[in-house]
Design a protein around this nucleic acid. Structure first.
Lengths: 232, 232, 232, 232
DNA sequence: CATGAATGAGTCTTCATTCAT
DNA sequence: GATGAATGAAGACTCATTCAT
């Protein structure tokens, strides 16, 4: 079915085939629903060989996460030219990001959805990658501010929030772009750049936003009518 | 263990207890890893009763999604006062959103993670809710622009992109806020409002961003060296 | 196949049927070679039911050991009349012992062979039973000596050795009797009583045995030619 | 890990290394739980080589039994000086026996426990060795009786019983000595010689034992109340 | 209404065994 | 002579689901 059934391949090659199959199945079915049988069949090998090379379902999943995380960060890094101005770097990085997630939707599903849904061990693996990307964006923002000779002492907490929001938006847009036919990587990147630059501000230019300071208790909106009563 | 074992309760109440238990288990274990045994035990009823009331695991999960989707949209709606200016409505809605997701992390896990990870049927259920929220935000943006007498003919496609990005960022921030101890609903909302208004623009005020128009082929960054070769 | 397939039996009964089947299979195949499938089939139930009632293969095996150990000690106890003279008690006890092991060869195999061959946990379970029997025999020897007004201060260490040898011989004879067709419980008991009373002494009456005291090093027999060189 | 990995050894040597490893693993894990992988690794060779030299797991186990049976009988034979009086021969033989089983506990486990627990084929292999030893002891008893000009026409059946009990006791004591720290081969032999000579007779000298002749049916002790009901 | 009893199907995992090199 | 690559078969264990009471 999956790969052509060639016998006697070197271990390294077979392992990659297995990971290919595993990413596909894990990405589509989820960790628990994925069966080792299906993965082995798609990889064109017998189940014992999968266990011989990758030990267990957990290890196999971890190997998938690691490989795909490396591939994604590698793709983003390759897309960015360090010398260029910060906005150009961001634009290039986002395009590389959306291009990669678009070309490898199963891999993105593994990283974005599956790995976060099945135990702290797997989640930690992705968190490492995410933090690398957030750090990259954070540093980009700081450099940009310095280059622009503007807000040189930007409060660290605020920068962290902006980076978090930017990366979070990118992640959501990646899933949205994958799920919405006809949305290209370039369009996704453009949407996000527009949001990051223009935002909603110029729509309401005469009413710039600042958080209200008064206690909102009397008119606090909230969970009136919430029907959920979770025990514990 | 879970609910107090009281005999002879009206069906409606029993059903809610079952859904409470199911949301908790589904939210923590995921759809596949959740066991009907555990749910029944946590609900304090016997397994056949769960089947009598809710038919199957699939139906039970769908019921969870529906109830929690309604609860979330209801909470957001209750948080917003229609008469107020658009930015205030957005601020109130975001606070209600983050408050609800923060108070019901298992429910949010079901909606944001689990439902999207296990088959198109469940995903469609959530998509409906999401579209309702996106529509609300979109309309808010349009009204705001009209109120401000600014950009009265905002291109629809662009508005859709902004709304999508805003909602996507909100979703990601909700997960981030739940996972990061010490982040309140108010802080999450503030972070997002800041991003939406200020964005990165004022950091690079003298270099406003516009998408490059030239073909990038010659210098296009990309997935050169991508090591992933997914079959199919 | 095994038991008549009657549906809907109370749990206690089903459990005994399962233990019956398990003792038979474990006794004949050994712990590892026994398969839960075979046990379930012989018990006339499905595998999940076995797991529902007895948790795991280990627990099932432990339950077998416990039940059969209790049955064996119970049989010996029932065979002995406390008031009678010590030799009569021993004779009765041995007959009860060989009768029981002869009637339940699989149970004896479980206790004597299988339980000792598969991990300290199981072995400990049998050791408890064995110690009970050794204690009984030891006390019998002591009482007998006292009754006979002979060797009232029998050294404890020597008594322990005798009891150990007697019980050991009984155990071996039980296996031998089970494996040798035509040997009755009564014959086995007689053989052992003869050995315990007459021993080899009266065959060599003029040459009573005492351990040589000189160091035997020069003429020490030993493992010349032993081909075994076990590493470690 | 086990043996030093030297290349190109003569087949005979390699085979012995494999058997060394096999005895160790079989003795500790049991036949079924032992894995060919572990044996090959401990022997320091590749698995196919094990199959090339020893055909199958069954054959390997049989080879282990044969080698160790020969080693044990050889050790006992070497320990005995044919010319000496019978009790001295018995004493020497027992000491050699306990010395060997004590020095090769894994081998003794294979012979005494594992081989008897896994199918008639293996059991037969050990039975041959056992019969050789029983024959040796039987002949010793007969010669001793003849030497002592006492009971010259000892009934064959009775001699067989005594020999069986003696060997059985020896086997049990070997396992007991291996499991009980601090018991030397000499002590084990002494215990058994004491039992064989003194027995329990001199404890109850005034009440010599003879089997009751009356039918015991009316007062027969037995398995009243035996709770075991083995099917078949 | 409510449940103890029961199971078919499927999961992960391991093992003895064999080729092709 | 030696081994890395590969597998068919089977085993322990779990789960969603249903009757009979």
């Amino acid at each position: 079915m999956g790969a052509v059934k060639t016998k006697r391949m070197p271990r390294a090659v077979r392992e990659q085939q297995m990971l290919d199959a595993a990413v596909r199945i894990f990405g589509r079915r989820g960790y628990t629903a994925a069966s080792m049988d299906e993965i082995a069949e798609l990889a064109g090998v017998s189940k014992p060989l999968v266990y011989l090379y990758l030990n267990s379902k957990e290890d196999l999943f971890t190997a998938c996460i690691r490989r795909e995380a490396k591939a994604l960060t590698g793709a983003v890094r390759s897309g960015v030219r360090p010398g260029l101005p910060a906005d150009r770097q961001l634009w290039d990085g986002l395009r590389a990001f959306f291009a990669h997630t678009g070309e490898h939707p199963d891999a993105w599903s593994v990283l974005h959805l599956q790995a976060r849904t099945h135990g702290a061990t797997f989640a930690a693996e992705v968190t490492a990658m995410r933090e690398e990307i957030v750090a990259f964006v954070t540093q980009l923002i700081v450099v940009a501010a310095r280059e622009a000779h503007r807000n040189p002492d930007l409060p660290e907490r605020e920068v962290a929030g902006l980076a978090e929001a930017l990366v979070g938006a990118a992640e959501s847009l990646a899933a949205w772009a994958n799920a919405t036919p006809g949305v290209t990587a370039r369009e996704a990147a453009e949407t996000l750049m527009n949001f990051a630059w223009a935002g909603l501000a110029n729509l309401m230019a005469d009413r710039p936003w600042t958080p209200p300071e008064e206690p909102e208790a009397p008119e606090a909106p909230g969970e009136l009518g919430e029907p959920v009563a979770q025990p514990g």
